[in-house]
Design a binder for these strands. Sequence first.
DNA 1: AAACTATATAACTACTTGGTAATATAGGAA
DNA 2: TTCCTATATTACCAAGTAGTTATATAGTTT
Lengths: 106, 106
Amino acid sequence: MKKMKPEALDHVAYRLKLLAEPMRLKILYHLQEGEKSVQELVALTDSGQANVSKHLSMLASSNVVGRKKKGLHVYYYIADKSIFQICDLVCKNLEQNARKVSDVFQ
Amino acid sequence: MKKMKPEALDHVAYRLKLLAEPMRLKILYHLQEGEKSVQELVALTDSGQANVSKHLSMLASSNVVGRKKKGLHVYYYIADKSIFQICDLVCKNLEQNARKVSDVFQ
DNA sequence: AAACTATATAACTACTTGGTAATATAGGAA
DNA sequence: TTCCTATATTACCAAGTAGTTATATAGTTT
């Protein structure tokens, strides 16, 4: 980040914003175990079909996921696996911070 | 992420949302070179004082930055350096993706 | 004390966005 | 063909939020 051009910050912010949404994270979480159709994701996330479709469209527009049409169904899959590195890193750091706090109380 | 509890996703999303804001990223970017007072950040980010204060409050609430009062001035500093790992990772991945696209055109 | 400066906060506006309902589109089945 | 199913899209609403203005608070200076 030190030698990063300030203009790049907007791109980083946009990518982060894409991931900074519980429902989208949930979708990506489920796509981790393999490609899934929209209706499968609707069932897994317990959300509405239109909502899931919209989130998938956003993720697809940024090439985070890809689409594959098979008959009536459309299957989505992870196209950019780097998002999991990001999530894991955030998760690891949050855990470390929380551990520091809990250690204060032994 | 594979063996992550789904409940953790909300926490991850919240942390990402905190970083997914151009102005906050800009503030963090400038804090990288050392602690800065609010007015210094106002000048560096070319934003209003109230706005900078609000963003700093948000970042401080999540212990991403810390506060240090010296007389009239309040100095903020990076309290959780892991945020730079996250930004660097996102940046690196975005760059790789862009390079793949540009390589298509030689 | 009064005047000044730095920061925080509250109230407000404008914009964005997640969710939903309704509709459109497209493909398969009868 | 008509009917049904899966997905995408549109329109809308409600909630959230970034930015600004005005005000409050706290510390400094005179």
